[in-house]
Nucleic acid binder design. Structure first.
Lengths: 211, 211
DNA sequence: GGATGTGAATGCATTCACAGCA
DNA sequence: TGCTGTGAATGCATTCACATCC
């Protein structure tokens, strides 16, 4: 098997990989052992050819006449995505979003673990948020080293988001999931992904109007 | 100005429209009156040509030699996206995510208002969630009519998500924002958008590993 | 000079369609 | 027969480059 050269793989294909994995985990829970590209694609509204081509970028996982073995493919995809081990994740922001995320039970099975929660608000520092004691932002650097964290979730107000992002990046964080409704600037070697619920509703509003 | 024919507009362009709008609202708060395609694009890491082409799909908003007038363009984009009026939104799921969303202050200014919260859990129905009294799912139909709601947010566990989605769609909801980590099936004339935090972390893990 | 809007050229991603294997 | 993997063909989206206007 050839090594992965991510620069030669379409970005959309990488994004779909996560959806395939999620789908496979669901069908595995239903006891299915094997699945064809057509079946894997249909609930995601993708063609069989799309599914096969996406997977083929990363290796030869299928069996002609059979399809893909669910368990094998799950293991392969986890390996490719890097979630065959657990990633320690820092969470900054102990507001409503931070609270929801800190108590989200689904992370562990997907290879992620929130290991510390931070906030700048003195009225929150030292308080408990679920199982975590909220720590001041000044301890981020220490926590990055302590936990070997490379990922962080940003759930602070829009005004602070860029500042906090800079701190996290300065402390060695390499991937950032941003819940603040602003576009963050970051060096090329730091990955940033974003969740903006208002933006998503806006897209739905447009589609509902015109489709 | 020609009418919008959404089928002739690249989907990515529509998605970027929301980002332009968010960016414009930010620079307006800073007091800027005018902005060039280059400036509008740079914090979003887009080329000036990309910005101009995207906007030109919807009309001629710019002024040669000047750029775009921030206030005008904001009004135009809101009109295009349909958020020059307020959309009433139903929220299903009174757990942690539902709680965070029901109290999110940012919706109003973007043209959205959560108007009712639902849950099936008898221990939650009748209880308060922020300003809302949690109502049983059976009242969804009534609420759709009462509020003229066409959008809903789904923040229920993965197992119920498809069932609840079917109820919402049956009651007349046309756009769905899904926080459950499953892929929903819906008729072609219902728009579905999704937030899956684990999937996004997975993508970051991949990028951090290979980029 | 400084900016837009836009055809034409390029570059990506998806789909087709089929050889080949179980 | 049933399904994968994959070049070739197609279809979209982005970028270029320039005529045009303030």
């Amino acid at each position: 098997m050839e090594p992965i050269r991510p620069e030669s793989i379409p970005n959309p294909a990488v994004r779909r990989l996560s959806l395939y994995l999620r789908q496979l985990e669901a069908v595995q829970r239903k006891g299915r052992r094997t699945i064809s590209s057509k079946q894997l694609g249909e609930s995601l509204r993708l063609t069989d050819a799309q599914v096969r081509k996406d997977l083929a970028y990363f290796g030869q996982f299928g069996h002609p006449g059979i399809g893909y073995r669910v368990e094998d493919l799950i293991l392969q995809l986890r390996k490719i995505l890097g979630t065959d081990r657990t990633w320690n994740v820092l969470l900054v922001g102990a507001g409503n979003v931070g609270k929801a995320l800190s108590s989200y039970r689904g992370f562990r099975a997907k290879g992620f673990q929130v290991v510390a929660v931070f906030d700048n608000d003195p009225s929150k520092v030292g308080r408990k948020l679920g199982a975590f004691t909220v720590r001041p932002l000044g301890e981020i650097q220490k926590a990055v080293e302590e936990f070997g964290a490379r990922l962080a979730i940003l759930a602070v107000p829009a005004d602070n988001a860029q500042d906090v992002a800079d701190q996290l990046i300065g402390a060695g964080i390499r991937g950032l999931l941003n819940f603040a409704p602003v576009s963050l600037s970051a060096p090329r070697d730091v990955a940033v992904s974003a969740v903006d619920v208002a933006v998503q509703l806006e897209q739905l509003a447009f589609q509902v109007t015109f489709l």
